[in-house]
């Protein structure tokens, strides 16, 4: 298949991760925040697959499998929470739920 240097693959994962982190820090809409979290998870999965490809073993893919499962579970619960947030505060502003301050 491809014969790209390993660091390029990992750098791609890094770039995607950084973009996801940036999105989490900036976006105020909670749905976008969740989307950016998915981006980060996907990036870390990419890193694992690249590592598995580097060694030629199945372990990288197994890790990606687990990350995927976890991401699915997290999205379910996260979206349920979003629905609750919307119902209670009538907004999707993540800063609206700031009672746990001070």
């Amino acid at each position: 298949m491809v014969t790209v240097p390993v660091e390029h693959g990992l750098m791609l994962a890094g770039v995607l991760f950084a973009l996801g982190a940036l999105g989490v820090m900036v976006r105020r809409n909670v749905v976008f925040t969740l989307m950016c979290v998915e981006i980060m998870l996907n990036a870390s999965g990419l890193a694992f697959v690249v590592a598995g490809w580097r060694w030629g073993q199945a372990d990288g893919q197994v890790m990606f499998f687990f990350i995927l499962t976890m991401a699915a579970a997290e999205v379910c619960v996260g979206l349920a929470l979003v629905l609750q947030l919307h119902r209670r505060f009538q907004t999707l502003d993540v800063d609206a739920a700031d009672k746990m301050r001070g």
């Binding site: 982190a21 989490v24 820090m25 900036v26 976006r27 105020r28 909670v30 925040t33 993540v94 800063d95 739920a97 700031d98 009672k99 746990m100 301050r101 001070g102």
Partner: peptide
């Protein structure tokens, strides 16, 4: 520093 804002916390984590 405990503002209650998620984005601020995310920034601190990063």
């Amino acid at each position: 520093t405990q503002t209650g804002h998620v984005r601020w916390y995310a920034m601190v984590i990063v």
